[in-house]
């Protein structure tokens, strides 16, 4: 039990510390694909450090909610990182929340950020909040259907049990997971504000969603939000790995498998970041009102996954 708790803490800390690295790697890959010279891998860390040192500039009318939101968002993301099996499937904290609760945690962070964006009362803030909530209500049903598909296979919504079923039990091929995986990828791009739904590098008013919400933030608050964004990307990647390519995650109590699990994690994450950057480089951002079509495609794929499971796998 103590070992489990230590493992849990170590794993969560690892996620928090490594998250900006994944961001840096993705940015680097994207720069390569776009033919630019790439920033160093550690650029996100430098950015966060720089922001922490600055004085916070806050609008006159900001309410306490505005200053509280970044901490809340960061705490939610740290909690989410604690729920997902990253290197070891040894999570004493996981009974506190399952996959459905994970959706709830992401939703909590999002609602706080959206409310904080509306707090100052600039037109950009409300615009960002509205668009963010639009994307999220379209993405959430699809994400839940993805979780449903995996839960039907594992007969459980607990992430460690799902990993256990898929990775450490008898090997079986689940066609439904292919549909679910594509749907999950589409939803993740939307939820993490990536192309084709949002562009993380833009500050063009017509297109921005996430950036419009955090326009008023600066210094330590911005640093926390940027860190939380990186952590969200990391957690989503870890979630995708746990649901669809869980091989390599160390079973509970097996500490000998940890080095291999670390290697597997780094390899999978690097490949995932590369793929994300590649897809971002070759696709264009969608117009806002094409986003519902994109996300309903994701939803339909997830539903197809569920139906495939019932037709072929039961």
């Amino acid at each position: 039990m103590t070992a489990g708790i230590l493992m849990q803490l170590a794993q969560t800390l690892l996620a928090i510390l490594l998250a900006p690295l994944l961001m840096g790697w993705t940015n680097q890959c994207r720069a390569w694909f776009q033919g630019r010279s790439a920033p160093p891998l550690t650029q996100p860390y430098r950015m966060i450090r720089k922001l922490f040192h600055k004085d916070a500039v806050i609008a006159h009318d900001a309410s306490p909610l505005f200053r509280f939101a970044p901490y809340m968002v960061f705490a939610c993301m740290a909690l989410a990182a604690g729920i997902v099996p990253i290197v070891a499937n040894d999570l004493p904290f996981s009974p506190a929340a399952d996959a459905i609760a994970l959706v709830g945690v992401f939703a909590t962070a999002r609602v706080f950020l959206a409310l904080a964006a509306m707090d100052i009362g600039t037109s950009f803030g409300t615009l960002g909040a509205r668009r963010e909530m639009l994307v999220s209500f379209l993405a959430e049903p699809a994400l839940l259907m993805v979780f449903f598909t995996t839960s039907f296979i594992a007969q459980s919504t607990q992430l460690p049990v799902i990993v256990e079923t898929l990775a450490h039990k008898q090997f079986a091929i689940y066609p439904s997971l292919a549909f679910a995986a594509v749907a999950f990828w589409m939803v993740s791009t939307a939820e993490n504000a990536r192309i084709p739904v949002d562009n993380p590098t833009t500050h063009l008013e017509l297109t921005m969603i996430h950036e419009a919400m955090i326009l008023e933030y600066s210094a330590r608050h911005l640093a926390l939000i940027e860190w939380a964004v990186a952590l969200k990307l990391f957690t989503y990647s870890a979630l995708g790995i746990a649901l669809f390519i869980p091989w390599g995650i160390a079973p509970a109590g097996n500490y000998g498998a940890l080095p291999l699990a670390m290697l597997a994690l780094v390899g999978k994450m690097a490949a995932g970041g590369l793929l994300l950057a590649f897809l971002e480089a070759i696709s264009a951002k969608l117009r806002l009102f094409r986003v519902p079509e994109y996300l309903s495609t994701a939803f339909l794929l997830a539903v197809l996954g569920t139906l495939t499971h019932f037709l072929l796998e039961v």
Binding site: A114, M133, L134, S136, F137, F148, V303
Partner: peptide, 20 residues
């Protein structure tokens, strides 16, 4: 099970409504 998606949609839209 697929009908559950409507409940998910309603819940997510409820968050939209409350932010509004």
């Amino acid at each position: 099970p697929v009908a559950a998606a409507s409940i998910a949609l309603a819940a997510a839209l409820a968050a939209y409504v409350m932010v509004k």
